[in-house]
Write a protein that binds this DNA or RNA. Sequence first.
RNA 1: GGCGCGGUAGCCAAGUGGUAAGGCCGUGGACUGCAAAUCCUCUACUCGGCGGUUCGAUUCCGCCCCGCGCCUCCA
Length: 477
Amino acid sequence: MEFLLHNTASGERDPIQASDGKTVRFYCCGPTVYGPAHIGNFRTFLIQDLFRRVCEASGLKTTHVRNVTDVDDKTIRESMAQGMALREFTASWQEKFEKDCAELNLLAPHHSPSAVDHIDEQIRLIEQLMEKGHAYQGNDGSVYFRVSSFDRYGELAHIRRDAQKENADGRINSDDEYSKDDVADFALWKSRKEEDGANYWESPWGDGRPGWHIECSAMSMRYLGPSIDVHGGGVDLTFPHHENEIAQSEAATGERFVRHWFHSAHLMVEGRKMSKSLGNLYTLADLKEKGYQPEEVRWALLSGHYRKTLNFTFDSLKAAQKALGRIGDLVEKLDLQAEDIDDLAPDQLEGDFRSAWESLLTDLNVPQALGFLMKEISRGEKSAGSLSKDEAVRWFASCRALLNTIGVNLEAWLSRRVSEEDTAASAPEEISKMAEARWAAKKEKDFAEADRLRNEISEAGWLVKDTPDGFELTPVS
RNA sequence: GGCGCGGUAGCCAAGUGGUAAGGCCGUGGACUGCAAAUCCUCUACUCGGCGGUUCGAUUCCGCCCCGCGCCUCCA
């Protein structure tokens, strides 16, 4: 079965293919490293990671490039506000970003080039555009791409320039409109400004810094060649960022820049847009602080279809937690030596596991895949006791294969759960004493006293669980 | 104003021209001295509203209402 993915450019589900017959080369627009990444950012990167995993599980090799934007208005402004060198500032945020990525089990891209490290490549690309007459220097010294020189401009976003210019409620009106020949033209090279401080580079057009769009074209070409298989990003980047990338790349090389455009929808939180003022711009750290594990966050963020706005709620996070708990309980009940069990290839899957895999191949339909997965979980729960060893091993291997494809690391989640149980066992002495008194009362069949103590312990924030030969204490969140 | 996406049970969320996956929550039950956990069971005569096409529409078409996105460097 082919891996089909919706292509923004064609508007259809197109098969994913390696144009060289071997390796799918794909580029993803990465983070601007000027602050903590929030779960909305991670949704996009998670979806790209899923895309890569499905490619690889289906037998395709990949070369995955995700850039780091480390020079723009925000990075410059913030670094200067904090009195830090740009590179020092961005490096610290990049490090935090990569740590979060690792916790969310995102595969590290094969290349993570930064814009600052590729100034030369960007300058060379702009030179080509100048030579071919697609770019010009404005009277402010900046270099602009001449949109009218590229006929196919607007094709990706399905935007007609004439229609857009007329009516934008005055929104197309920037400070530099007198420097550009046309308001739609965009900066390739920005001339040095005082507020940029020490952050400028030499170029044939004077000191300055690259515009935003050019970095992606330059680095995509540098690592993947002039024409690539897949390019991804958040929906908001479709226009103008990706449209501009196409224009400048194709104008420079004369080759088709990207065959398959892949965009993921945004996130809402509890039914509202994410925004600083609403205080719902959660980071991974925020959610961990609230007691959720990265695997649960990953599950929740992936639980909606990638082309549809996802309403991220704490209920869905709890549902993810519960789902992982069910899987974990079942796996423990099966009592298998996981490390001795061989990995299964997707085409060896059977039943609803198989259906789940096919859902992933059909435009990354994760919600449907999870539906099939949970059906198999229910089936497993019902038959866990009566499975033969072989059946249990096959069930487990299938389940793990699917979870791995989705990128949910069950083993990591389980081991964290075990270590949590260990720490939870150490309740304060006061609580333990009450619990022991209760156990004694229970032994004496003094249930009134036992219940009284249970309530008291409960009010202190702990839950008593009786087991066949004793009790356990767990904190109530 | 232009372009685009979406409105499916209390909540999250798939899906199909032929009669609604899955999860969470909730219900009832088993178990338990009582709990917790676990397991079993049940839970949308209906898919934003109104028309149309059709033997038949939640699924196709039209209009309307509501939400969201892009149209100046936001994943």
